[in-house]
Computed example of a mutant assay.
Amino acid sequence: MQRFFELTFKPFFVITGLGTALASLYAFWPRWAAETVGKIPFVTEYTIITQHWGIMVGLMGVFMIVAALKVEWRKPILIYSLLEKGFMVYLVLANGGQSYAQGFKVGAAMDATVVVYTIIYFAVFGLSKSQQ
């Protein structure tokens, strides 16, 4: 199992980090991202929180890429990513029947994959051991 992570960790977190970083579209083009990507109506009064969410999640993606490349940064980034992405998956599942959740299902599927991968990664390497 360790060999699996040695082979897949960098490409997995670079690719999923890039996907996560795309949320920064909400920070710079909130109307377009909400309506086109999220498939939700843009509410002008929520522009600031939409942009804030976009930059937070976008930076999470950047840091996921950093975790792929800098072993010493890996553990705190993975822990935060696990919590952030796990909560997003929960939110989409809890609101799955609502129309406003539909545009987030693809992202939640990717987030669920990252959560499962990270849990197995920590099960193999532990939280206290040095990773790779």
Rank of each mutant, 00 (worst) to 15 (best):
I65D: 01
V37E: 03
F42P: 05
P41I: 10
V66Q: 07
V43H: 13
K70M: 13
I40Y: 07
M64Q: 14
G54P: 00
A68T: 03
G58K: 02
M60H: 06
I40F: 09
T50W: 05
T36V: 14
M56S: 05
K70Y: 08
A68N: 02
M60S: 08
V43S: 11
G38Y: 05
L69A: 05
G54N: 04
F42V: 09
I55G: 01
V37Y: 09
A68G: 13
G58T: 00
Q51S: 15
Y46T: 13
G61K: 07
V62R: 06
G58V: 00
V57C: 00
V43Q: 13
F42T: 08
Y46Q: 15
E45F: 07
I55S: 05
T50Y: 13
V37I: 14
K39N: 12
I48V: 14
F63N: 04
I55H: 02
V57Y: 00
E45K: 10
I48G: 08
M64Y: 06
T44V: 09
A68R: 10
G58Y: 01
L69S: 07
M56L: 14
L59R: 03
P41E: 09
T44L: 11
Y46S: 12
M64D: 03
E35S: 05
G54W: 00
I65K: 06
V66S: 06
